[in-house]
């Protein structure tokens, strides 16, 4: 019984990490159809931002305040990644809408540039971010221990998803974004500035990648190639969930997380990985549009 609960927790925890790294991509790829190969590097930027915020706290703030650096790191990572995303959109991406192959190549190029930039600034070796005291250790429930950092990531993901749902479905900006993504010409004919919506939407997607990077510093060391390790997973989650569907991304991430953990439990890490890919390939044969797809009355 305890083993099962532990596995379920591990599965959900892995799912929450997958979801966090895929959230930004659910916007840039899922909603805007931009194959953004630099998504991983936006995650990396968030991670390094956290590292920088931590270093500032170590050097300039009294020791007692150190634990709170991560509260500043979250908005800092979001804003910096969003700004770099905005620059990407304005200088490159906007010329490539509707040209998936070109945007794939261009964003891959951007990812290499960003990696090299990180190497030049921070050096090639990995750097470690010290987890705050508050988030290290574990809580014991019924003689099972759950790492606090994992629980923190779970809560962070829940907050991010909640915020995204609110933003996309309850605010005027969200309404404009959904309108533009569904029918660009008609949205423009109603007076919506599609340029502004494109740029800000891409920046928001990039910002969420930054938050994911912040969370990854709690799990392990960070380096210039941090993003490449996660980019495949992120695309996998969005495709399985159904392109364009936020809810699908949530379900896809948790599903992959849980199945991955189960497979690894019965086999080993690499075999589990193989099995999850087999499962996804089979699943996409059955449902090519992913878990959720847009179904509405088609007229004329």
């Amino acid at each position: 019984m305890e083993g099962i609960i532990a596995q379920i927790f591990n599965g959900i925890s892995l799912g929450s990490i997958l979801l966090l790294i895929a959230l930004g991509l659910a916007i840039t790829f899922g909603l805007m159809n931009v194959i953004n190969m630099a998504h991983g590097e936006l995650i990396m930027i968030g991670a390094y931002t956290t590292y920088v915020v931590q270093t500032i706290f170590i050097n300039y703030f009294p020791e007692g305040l150190f634990d709170w650096y991560f509260l500043f790191a979250i908005p800092a990572a979001f804003i910096l990644a969003a700004l770099i995303g905005l620059v990407m959109e304005v200088t490159v991406i906007r010329f490539l809408y509707g040209r998936p192959l070109d945007s794939l190549l261009a964003t891959f190029g951007i990812s290499l540039v960003l990696q090299q930039l990180a190497r030049s600034i921070f050096g090639a070796p990995n750097v470690g971010v010290q987890s705050p005291e508050l988030l290290s250790g574990a809580v014991e429930i019924f003689s099972m221990s759950f790492p606090i950092s994992r629980i923190f990531i779970l809560i962070l993901v829940a907050l991010c998803v909640g915020f995204m749902f609110y933003y996309f479905y309850k605010t005027g900006n969200g309404r404009r974004i959904r309108a533009v993504m569904q029918n660009r010409d008609m949205a423009a004919s109603l007076g919506i500035s599609t340029r502004k919506v494109d740029a800000s939407t891409f920046a928001i997607g990039a910002g969420f990648a930054g938050v994911a990077g912040m969370a990854l510093t709690l799990i392990g060391p960070i380096g210039p190639t941090l993003g490449t390790a996660y980019i495949i997973d992120a695309f996998m989650v969005v495709v399985v969930g159904g392109v364009g569907m936020l809810l699908g991304t949530v379900a896809g991430a948790l599903g992959i997380g849980v199945f991955n953990t189960i497979f690894e439990y019965f086999t080993d890490a690499s075999m589990g990985r193989v099995l999850i890919f087999v499962l996804i390939i089979l699943f996409l044969q059955w449902k090519p549009n992913g878990l959720f797809s847009i179904n509405t009355r088609k007229l004329d």
Binding site: R176, Q182, I192, I294, T296
Partner: peptide, 20 residues
């Protein structure tokens, strides 16, 4: 061909009229 936004609610479609 109307070109209303099928995944937005009727009310949200109407609200988009205020944009201009």
């Amino acid at each position: 061909g109307r070109e209303i936004f099928t995944t937005l609610t009727v009310y949200e479609n109407l609200l988009l009229g205020f944009e201009s």
